[in-house]
Design a protein around this nucleic acid. Sequence first.
DNA 1: CGTCGCATTGATATCGCTCAAATCCGGTGG
DNA 2: CCACCGGATTTGAGCGATATCAATGCGACG
Lengths: 188, 188
Amino acid sequence: MQSRRYPKDRPVFNQGDPVRAVFLVAKGEVRLTRFGPRGEEVILQRARRGDYFAEAALDSGRYHCNAIAAEPSELLEIPAAVLRDLLDRDAAFACQWATLLARQLRTTRARLERMALHGAADRLRHYLATEGSGPRNEVRLGGSLKDLARELGVAHETLYRTLARMEQSGYVERDGARLRLSAARRRV
Amino acid sequence: MQSRRYPKDRPVFNQGDPVRAVFLVAKGEVRLTRFGPRGEEVILQRARRGDYFAEAALDSGRYHCNAIAAEPSELLEIPAAVLRDLLDRDAAFACQWATLLARQLRTTRARLERMALHGAADRLRHYLATEGSGPRNEVRLGGSLKDLARELGVAHETLYRTLARMEQSGYVERDGARLRLSAARRRV
DNA sequence: CGTCGCATTGATATCGCTCAAATCCGGTGG
DNA sequence: CCACCGGATTTGAGCGATATCAATGCGACG
């Protein structure tokens, strides 16, 4: 297992390449894409820090999409053979791997559910409800509000406005990198 | 492990129920849903013949969504305790289990990326690109167009209009329950 | 037949995206 | 110390796409 750096726009692998490894994003962002019938690029996945990608490639012999570093990135590369071997031999590891995948699956489903909501306020509420902790659903923002906006799938301007409105009406509080429901919360 | 029949609209389990089993659809279709803050239903997963569902529930003590039979269905029920035991002991099984989870993860992420698209046409294109098979990305619709609309996260009226426009402009063809890209496809 | 649900089309309102501009803030170099 | 710069944060204006409400046709089914 080794770490490797990729400059911006450097491909990690291309569709059809033989599978050599599974990846974990240590830094940066990698985009998995496929090309539509008219040559337009369709983003299948945006893997950011902490995300695995190409885990499903373990079964198939070749990658079924393209991976390109969207930013200068650092990737932990786990050779497919090593991982397969570990899974075959070490029952405890396979179990842990399954637990990991199950957790990823759960969080991804939560995000899917969030994206099905139409309003920006609804998505933010859902975000606090699922990601927040404590009695007031506090969330520590990892990055900027722009990043949160991308996570929620709304334009950053919309998030600013929505946040302002929700603060105004006493629904949420912001405190630096912290975000939580107000103690005395009202309707939005 | 036992098989069991569910009539249409019979709940398999509800959110908050203690986890008793993981399921495999032998026949029919089961929909996993959760209800939003204003009562709107969100489809988290459509499990059809051959699909497992609630496989991520193994780690958590309670189901976190609702499962309802969308058609008269036959389900193979695998008690959670049995599965946990298998995972602990049988490395080969654990490996296959991980493969299964990885596949689910991949399709869920594809849906997540789809929901990140803003236009109804974009979502439909993405749907064909990811779910379709063959040179023309053909998809067999499992249910009604309304169901597809819910799957895509758009109002059914919007889907009708979008479909009509895309057919009009020669981008897609509809043929009963089949949907595919046109042979001679043009711009949208 | 009557009813129910799907499919379709029309009209309208609303929400969020886009473009634009101003401010703030931390870092950097002179 | 200060000027400068890039990125984040805000606020404004306008527009387009979609949700929503509404009405109709149609087929299945009892």
